[in-house]
Design a protein around this nucleic acid. Structure first.
Lengths: 124, 124
DNA sequence: GTTATATATAACTCTACGGTTGTAGAACCA
DNA sequence: TGGTTCTACAACCGTAGAGTTATATATAAC
């Protein structure tokens, strides 16, 4: 059902907005693990963990392997990178603007010209 | 009420898991804006936008200024950086492990020694 | 075959979220 | 003063999320 890029980001960020799921990601960063192994550290039922894994999987953050009855999960770094890219982008833009703003304020201060915004509310 | 670092990450990622809020962040990356200005592009009531702004604010991603009746919002790049740091961390670790795994597989293949996992399930 | 282990699914509860409308309050304008 | 503009708040509704227990499926072991 072809998800848009925006829907992908929805899924990725939503998946990471839960401490249990972030802990799972952290755990998987040091190697693949079965559902049981992943469940062990948490005071939570196995189905609950399976649900969390499903969320992470739908977000593309992890994938399922196969080893006998086990279905070990592993990280998919691509999607982590995708989220990172989104964040980095706006952080950079904003930081650039911040420096521009600094420069602008210096300029205005030098000119001693107070600015009153017009009703139309034009944005730079 | 002193939020833990984990709760902060909860709030940040949850805030970014909504397309409207990401669009608002994108908009604010190019300069501060009033609630009305932020609401304009969306087919959504003003209170809805105010709610979204509250979510972003609770996550520390934006802050409120004051200009007459307006309460212009601006980005707080610090928190974007915080989320980025979390993501980067596990992406890097995993990528490092991925390369180690490659090396390990080469090694195993060279030795032609099939490994059967013992019952205890020790993790490397 | 039976039994055990590992995982997934179903059905349910409870709460949080994203939207609505209506209204209140604060700052400006005439 | 009265009216307009901008924002916030309250109450409500529908749906999705995170957990539960119970059960089903799949692979393995005996």
């Amino acid at each position: 059902m072809q998800r848009t890029r925006s829907q992908q980001l929805d899924a990725i960020f939503a998946a990471l907005a839960d401490p249990t799921r972030r802990a799972i990601v952290a755990r998987l960063a040091s190697g693949e693990a079965s559902v049981m192994e992943l469940a062990k550290p948490f005071a939570m039922s196995q189905p609950a963990i399976s649900k969390h894994l499903k969320v992470l999987e739908r977000a593309g953050l992890i994938s399922r392997g196969q080893d006998r009855q086990r279905r070990p999960r592993r990280l998919e770094a691509k999607r982590l990178a995708e989220a990172t890219r989104w964040l980095e982008r706006y952080r950079r833009i904003w930081e650039a603007n911040f420096q521009r703003l600094d420069a602008l304020l210096e300029e205005l201060k030098a000119q001693e010209r107070p600015v009153r915004r017009a009703k139309g509310g034009e944005r730079s």
